[in-house]
Nucleic acid binder design. Structure first.
Lengths: 152, 152
DNA sequence: GTTGTTGCAAACTGTTTGCATAGTA
DNA sequence: TACTATGCAAACAGTTTGCAACAAC
């Protein structure tokens, strides 16, 4: 279920919503940076390079819209900013390795989580719909720079 | 490694920091509500009942201090507020089941996660220090109220 | 007495909203 | 044309900070 620019615009088009160049530009940046999870301001700055007239409020409104339509999903890393990534059917973008040294964020495959989700749901009589898993630690690059210590 | 009021105050006392009634009160509320994860404002409102003179800024400063000292840890549920819970050695309070209907939050045992942490760390050459796992879904109580549907 | 801590108010940051204007279908 | 979407500025919510008064050790 690949989410490219075309599929998203088609879906927008077939709804009651309109396709504007602003929405096009926002979707473009999200797709081009699908490995990164952009914040509203990230998107704003990227687009302003080419179209200085765009407004921050438009970014927020469009990001909300695309999230409501199920094309994006919100992620937060606890830094006070909401970030957005392609929803992409499954939720592989909800699984993160976050480096506590350099702040790098990478995704990991969620195959690991299938059985966990089931086991936890059963044990707690909780009907699981979605998950969000973050592992904090030291990434490969930072491990090389200095011997790793436990959190100070 | 139980964190009760006494141990925390002792640790504060043996540091360069001072023990004030404000800090005492804040720690008391956190410990009394250790099953709940309070936000700064939650703590503020609780304490104001008994001591209306306390200031919100003090709450924030103390919560930051206790977090830096490793006694508390920050948690966020994506609602824009930072919440705090006892760090308590391990991190069982970082595992949450969040009901998307009523907003209830409960913790689940982390025994499930030990092997997952190892496997993911190894597969990605990432040295895991801590984790934060959230399952979103429908809690037992809400399942009774109405037949469960997928997220609308 | 010295130095850390507090309350208050002002400042900040990320996000939302009202409104007149502009653009899409 | 009809109605949605935009940009701007003001409004908001949560959090941080400067500072003079105050309290712990």
């Amino acid at each position: 279920m690949p989410h490219n620019i075309r599929t998203i615009l088609e879906r927008l088009n077939s709804s009651e919503y309109r396709v504007t160049w602003q929405r096009w530009a926002i979707i473009k940046e999200i797709v081009l940076n699908k490995d990164r999870q952009l914040s509203a301001e990230d998107v704003y700055n990227l687009i302003k390079q080419d179209y200085p007239e765009i407004g921050l409020a438009t970014i927020y409104r469009t990001l909300d819209l695309l999230t409501d339509l199920g094309m994006l999903q919100r992620v937060s890393f606890g830094d006070g900013k909401t970030r957005y990534g392609l929803a992409d059917g499954g939720s592989q973008y909800q699984n993160h390795l976050i480096c506590v040294r350099c702040g790098a964020v990478e995704a990991f495959d969620e195959a690991f989580l299938r059985s966990l989700e089931e086991a936890v749901g059963e044990a707690n009589q909780f009907q699981v719909i979605d998950h969000e898993v973050k592992f904090f630690g030291v990434c490969k690059a930072c491990q090389k720079e200095a011997p790793a210590r436990q959190r100070s």
